[in-house]
Design a protein around this nucleic acid. Structure first.
Lengths: 329, 329
DNA sequence: GACAGAATCTAGAGCGCTCTAGATACTACT
DNA sequence: AGTAGTATCTAGAGCGCTCTAGATTCTGTC
């Protein structure tokens, strides 16, 4: 079917195409009466303003691209909230790309966003190697959120501080044997392990690390191995909430009470950690604020492409719920 | 900065613009050697294929628009998984729009998607009135997912069946006084209440409905009022998991044990309902399958715009966890 | 070596808009 | 009435691509 174009509206309304264009962008220089008339004719003809053509004519848009790694993790929902708020305050549209299971496709997602000629990209949870991210940022300004990429604008929460906070909370409760459940090794997410090790070393204790997968079931299996061994720990610090849930699953299965028999701390303060009956002690990295910072940096970057890479670091906070308590005697 | 265009690549590679175009779309009719050469020159010049211009030239894309109501509700993450799977199988790209708090903006989101000239829109959790949705579907094919809109392609789960399943589960356990926590009245989401009422009537029992808000805290407050009254029920069926969590929050605060003192059933089987310690009995509407069905219908619609509106109804299933049990004596 | 047919490549129009530069209509003055 | 100044409107070029139709080169065959 032949789509209604601006030309059609112009002809029907008895004005020039340029004027219709102005009317639809409610720009100055169109009398109120004419604007109303034009919009009404447009409505009648079922005209929808074609942003593809508009973008081509303006050589790229002012929109921001947003990359979110995983919709199942509601940390990203929080980050998105922040990004959207700032975008709205500045009248910027958003174009989204979602990461897939396959991390290698993150690069393709970025290229797609660049292909839509967004002004800048805010990427939350990008799994690309630093160097590759840097290459991409040369084409379209890139802001890394919730991760630090050297040479690229980054808004992140200090994982060193968070991990320390979590570990020291457990130590203060009297735990001596705290095991860290680490994520699979990947760029940019090592600081949680380092913070844990620093805190343990500071207390003169020997760190113990278990490397786990991302899947909750597999984490539970790891935990089973750990708690069936001769020297089960009294506390576990997990690199994120999802992993902590895996540990809790195992404790439940074993009939152990979190916070009494074994203490568990997660990381992210995702909504699931506040579930009644779960009440996971965790680290909140204030996703919404992080998102806001990232969007602000992206917008700043569009007006000053050559400024030095900016950095915004924030401190996470400890959220104490019911999965932590003194060790049993 | 002047962007690198296809023209630039063509000149540098010593070929025509048209050939570069063919190479970038890896179409037939380009020799392997030339294609490689062109792509390599493009890479060197930092060229990114401009899909905006490409789309204009092809008069609209084959991409599917996707509307998701709320990123914080991981039901939508499941729907999206299904949509994406099918889109990938058919080589379709996706353009996303996310609903905002303000439901009135759903219409604007649809218009934006239409403006990008997607081939069709898959809308999950649209809050628009039926009539308005119908108007939109006249401009760009629309598929409603997880909701039924008369006259519009719809892929949905039968809420009547689900609500019946939930209620009958409670009745089978021996409950006589089951209260329904309804969502705020809105188009298209009434069947859960109807299913509940039907099941109660079938057992010769009087239905009791409490209308609640969407916020978990407010639901908890409603629940407080209910359980502080003279005749607290022995079971609650909530219109969705979020509301069920509100009820569980209140039970926790009152020191009541879900599944023993009071039974609770939710709806959606969102990930939070499986949290250890929460273990909410709920209704699973198989979001991924629903998403798949929606995407399939959208693609079918693009090849046959004038077929009668299609309908795909699936039956939800009951997931029994630990918040339901026989009533206390 | 000539020729048909396939493989590979190119010129140029056109997608639907925005933008620049300028035309025209309308005021309010002198 | 004449004119400057403002408000409103228009013509036409151009954004960077794809597509159609046709040109050119490369095969293999007799």
């Amino acid at each position: 079917m032949p789509r209604t174009t601006m030309e059609d509206v112009a002809r029907e309304a008895g004005v020039s195409r340029a004027l219709v264009s102005l009317a639809y962008r409610n720009a100055f220089g169109v009398s109120e009466a004419t604007r109303r008339h034009i919009l009404e004719v447009g409505e009648r003809l079922g005209y929808v303003h074609n942003r593809v053509a508009a973008q081509l004519a303006t050589r790229g848009s002012s929109a921001l691209g947003v990359f979110l790694q995983d919709l199942h993790n509601d940390l990203f929902a929080g980050l998105y909230d922040g990004i959207r708020e700032v975008a709205e305050e500045h009248g910027r549209e958003l174009v989204l790309a979602i990461g897939s299971r396959d991390e290698d496709r993150d690069a393709a997602s970025l290229t797609t966003l660049q292909g839509t000629r967004v002004a800048a990209i805010v990427a939350a949870g990008l799994r690309l190697p630093d160097a590759e991210a840097l290459t991409h940022s040369a084409r379209t300004p890139l802001v890394a959120v919730a991760r630090r990429i050297p040479g690229v604008d980054s808004a992140y929460s200090d994982n060193l501080v968070g991990a320390r906070l979590a570990t020291e909370h457990l130590l203060a409760l009297g735990h001596r044997d705290v095991v860290f459940f680490a994520n699979p090794p990947a760029d940019g997410y090592r600081d949680r392990g380092r913070g844990y090790e620093a805190a343990m070393a500071g207390a003169g204790l020997r760190p113990r690390t278990v490397v786990t997968s991302y899947a909750r079931e597999e984490v539970a299996a790891e935990a089973a191995r750990l708690f069936d061994a001769v020297d089960p720990p009294t506390a576990v610090f997990a690199h994120n909430d999802q992993a902590a849930l895996g540990v809790l699953d195992l404790l439940h299965a074993r009939g152990l009470t979190p916070g009494a028999d074994v203490s568990v701390v997660g990381y992210d303060n995702s909504s699931i950690s506040s579930a009644p009956g779960t009440a996971l002690t965790t680290i909140d990295l204030h996703g919404r604020d992080l998102g806001r910072a990232g969007a602000r940096m992206a917008i700043a970057r569009t007006s000053d492409p050559d400024a030095a890479p900016a950095l915004e670091v924030s401190d996470p906070t400890l959220v104490v719920r019911r999965t932590t308590g003194p060790p049993p005697r």
